[in-house]
Lab assay of single mutants.
Amino acid sequence: TTVKLGDIKVTFDNPEKAKKYAQKLAKIYQLTVHVHGDTIHVK
């Protein structure tokens, strides 16, 4: 599962960890989390 934020891409083996990371980023940057299959976009 890949978390994308602009040019930053972080890949996790564990989808749950990816989701938590995405939510953490979203909170920090006051953005929202969008899940598209294996990719989680923070924008």
Rank of each mutant, 00 (worst) to 15 (best):
G37E: 06
Y21Q: 00
A22G: 01
Q23V: 08
V33H: 01
K27R: 13
D38N: 14
T1W: 15
I8V: 09
H36T: 11
D7E: 10
T39G: 03
L5D: 02
P15T: 06
V33L: 11
D7M: 14
Q23P: 00
V42H: 01
T2G: 04
T32Q: 09
Y29L: 09
G37F: 06
Q23R: 10
I8P: 01
V3R: 03
A26E: 03
P15Y: 14
A18Q: 01
P15V: 10
D7P: 13
H36P: 00
F12N: 00
L5G: 02
Q30M: 10
H34F: 13
V35H: 07
Q30D: 11
E16A: 10
K19C: 15
T39Q: 06
K17M: 12
G37L: 06
H36N: 11
V42L: 15
I28Q: 09
H36W: 10
T1A: 06
L25K: 02
K9E: 13
D7A: 14
Q30K: 12
L25D: 00
A26H: 02
A26R: 06
K24Y: 15
K4T: 09
Q30A: 09
Q23S: 07
T1V: 12
T32V: 12
H34W: 12
H36C: 15
A18E: 00
N14L: 06
T39R: 03
T39I: 13
V42Y: 04
T2A: 05
I28C: 15
V35F: 11
K27Y: 12
I8G: 02
K24R: 12
V3T: 03
V35T: 07
D13A: 12
D13Q: 11
Y29S: 02
K24E: 08
A26N: 02
K43Y: 14
D7G: 13
V42W: 04
K20A: 13
K4D: 05
K4R: 12
K43N: 07
L5P: 02
Y21C: 11
G6H: 08
L31F: 07
E16W: 10
K9M: 13
L25R: 01
H34Y: 13
T1L: 08
K17D: 14
K27I: 09
L25Y: 03
E16F: 10
V10Y: 10
F12K: 00
K19H: 12
T32A: 09
I40A: 01
Q30F: 09
D7I: 14
K20Q: 11
K43F: 15
Y29R: 03
D13Y: 09
G6M: 07
V10R: 09
L25W: 06
H34T: 12
G6S: 04
T39S: 05
P15A: 11
T39P: 02
K17E: 13
D38W: 08
N14W: 06
K4L: 14
Q30G: 15
T39H: 07
A18D: 00
V33Q: 01
F12H: 01
N14H: 07
T1Y: 14
I8S: 06
H36K: 10
H36G: 05
V33Y: 07
L25I: 09
K20D: 07
K4Q: 13
T2Y: 08
V35D: 07
K4A: 08
A18C: 11
K4F: 13
I8E: 03
K27E: 11
K27S: 09
V42F: 10
V42E: 01
T11F: 14
K20W: 12
V3D: 02
A18S: 01
K43A: 11
V35P: 04
H34I: 14
L5V: 11
A22L: 06
I28W: 12
E16D: 10
Y29G: 02
G37S: 04
Y29W: 08
A22P: 00
V3A: 03
T32I: 11
K9Q: 11
Q23H: 10
I28Y: 12
H34K: 08
D7L: 14
V3N: 02
T39D: 04
K4H: 11
E16M: 10
V35C: 12
I28T: 07
T1H: 07
T32H: 07
L25H: 00
Y21D: 00
K27G: 06
K19L: 15
K27D: 09
K19I: 14
G6E: 03
K27A: 11
Y21G: 00
H41W: 13
L31M: 12
D7T: 14
L31T: 04
D38S: 12
L31E: 00
L5S: 03
T32P: 02
Q23K: 09
K17V: 10
A18T: 01
T1G: 04
H36L: 13
E16K: 10
L5A: 04
V42A: 02
H41K: 05
F12E: 00
P15M: 11
G6F: 11
K20C: 14
G6T: 04
D38P: 06
E16Y: 10
H36S: 12
V35N: 05
V33G: 01
H34G: 03
E16V: 09
K20R: 12
K24S: 07
H41E: 14
F12Y: 02
V33F: 07
E16R: 09
K17A: 13
K17N: 10
G6L: 08
G37I: 04
V3K: 03
T32D: 06
L25V: 06
G6Y: 10
I40F: 07
K19P: 00
F12I: 03
K24H: 13
K4G: 03
K24G: 05
I28F: 11
H34N: 06
K9C: 15
L25E: 00
Q23T: 08
Q30V: 05
V35M: 09
L31N: 01
G37W: 06
K20H: 08
H36R: 10
K27M: 11
L5H: 07
T11A: 07
T1N: 05
K4Y: 14
V3Y: 02
K27P: 00
Q30T: 06
T32C: 15
H41R: 05
P15R: 09
T2I: 13
T32N: 06
T39C: 13
L25F: 03
D38T: 10
K43Q: 12
Q30Y: 08
G37R: 05
Q23D: 10
F12V: 01
V33W: 09
A22N: 00
